[in-house]
Simulated scan of single mutants.
Amino acid sequence: MSTYDDPWYAIGNQLLTLSGYALVMAFFLKVPERVSKLVFLIGFALLAQSILTDLTSGVSQAARGAGFAENPNSAALRLSLLNIVCLFFLQQKRSVIIFIAINFVFVFLTLSRSGIIMFALSTFLIVAVKFGGITRLSKLPVFFVRSLPVAAMLTAFFFLIIPYLTSYFPSFESRGAAQRISQITGQSSLIDDQDVGDQGRVAIAEKYFGLILERPFGYGTGMSMNREFYYKATHNMYLRVGIDYGIFGLIILITIILAGVYRSVRFNDVYGLSFYMTMLIACFFTNTLFENRTFVFCWAYIDAIALKQLLQQRKIKAYDSEPIEALA
């Protein structure tokens, strides 16, 4: 049994994640906002530099079919999460537009389909509230309908421009990037043979889903990472939790996400909503979400902001409820 197959490794890893979340959250509750801002901007700069290095050096060309970064899907997820937190710090419209444009370039360089979806969703939600005149998150569906013409024009422009990358940038020709670009721009099916083949994500999901149905209370901690149990990883956080912890683990995971969405809508927290919606989608495409340190840092910061706002609101309510004589 390898280290990754050991259930004690899995338990220890989860405990480290929870401990890291608590410590990072305590850190962000104590430090000034400028320190938090510096932490995430440096993180974004390092990730962007890593993608550019891979773009120019091509070290992993033989290992990846498309996209840049050692793990393009992981890089795109990290960029999408950092997008949410960094947009919290930026207030001026020009700064927001410039940052979104730069971040989109790096997300696109990963050629991650799920990453582009997560980035687009979080960006839409935050921009709608920041500059769209949305005062309540419940009005977002109306804003979405009104924004469809503009979104259609931007999408059409994107589809027209992107295919030229393979003609003018040789780096995109050596990784199967042309096929991935055609998928992203709608020129070919978004799901290819690699997704539905014997070793594709669809086949893997069907296999693991069947295993969950056979033993709905789970197979034990770490079994989803055991290659003797099944030779392919789940590539899906819901399936991983279902294999390890059964339906009760799945209920806990889904409850955490839906509780975050509910709290965000209730308190009109667009950054929390963007984060938990990204988490909801990411769980379909990765089985190592809680091992992703960028995710832990962003999660801790988003919850730290929510906690600060909650404490501030309670303090204001307590102040307002005091008798006039006590305030005099």
Rank of each mutant, 00 (worst) to 15 (best):
G20W: 04
L15I: 07
A45M: 15
L109F: 05
K308L: 06
N236Y: 11
L41N: 09
V150A: 13
F27L: 12
V202C: 07
S224A: 09
M223G: 05
I212Q: 02
F297I: 13
K93W: 03
S182Q: 15
P163H: 08
K207M: 02
A326T: 07
A69M: 09
S57T: 13
Y301P: 04
S167D: 15
A259L: 09
L41M: 14
K317F: 03
F297M: 15
K232S: 13
T53L: 12
S188D: 07
P163M: 12
G67E: 05
G65I: 12
T53K: 14
K207C: 03
F229M: 08
T123C: 06
I254T: 10
L250M: 15
E322A: 04
F99N: 11
S80Y: 01
G132C: 10
F159K: 06
L140S: 05
Y231P: 04
R227H: 11
S80W: 00
F144Y: 05
F159I: 04
V265P: 01
Q61K: 10
Q309Y: 02
Q91Y: 01
R266I: 00
R215K: 15
L327H: 00
M223T: 14
L125W: 01
G176Q: 03
Y164Q: 14
F297Q: 10
L160T: 04
I116L: 12
P141V: 09
F131A: 11
V265Q: 01
S114L: 03
F108R: 00
M277Q: 07
G58R: 13
R146V: 10
K93T: 02
F106W: 12
F119M: 04
K130A: 15
G249L: 04
F217L: 04
L41D: 14
Q179P: 03
T17H: 12
N13H: 11
Q92C: 11
F68S: 02
G210P: 01
R180V: 08
I251L: 12
Y4A: 07
I162N: 14
F169Y: 15
L140Q: 05
L160V: 03
A48P: 09
V85C: 10
S19M: 10
L82G: 01
Y301T: 04
I252H: 04
G200D: 09
K139V: 11
I134T: 09
L23Y: 01
S122D: 14
L82S: 00
A178L: 01
S167K: 12
N292L: 07
V31I: 02
M1W: 00
A45T: 12
I324G: 02
G200C: 05
V241E: 11
I161G: 05
A152H: 03
L140P: 12
L307G: 13
K93Y: 08
L81K: 06
L165Y: 11
T110D: 05
V59M: 15
A69D: 11
G65V: 15
L111C: 02
G43M: 07
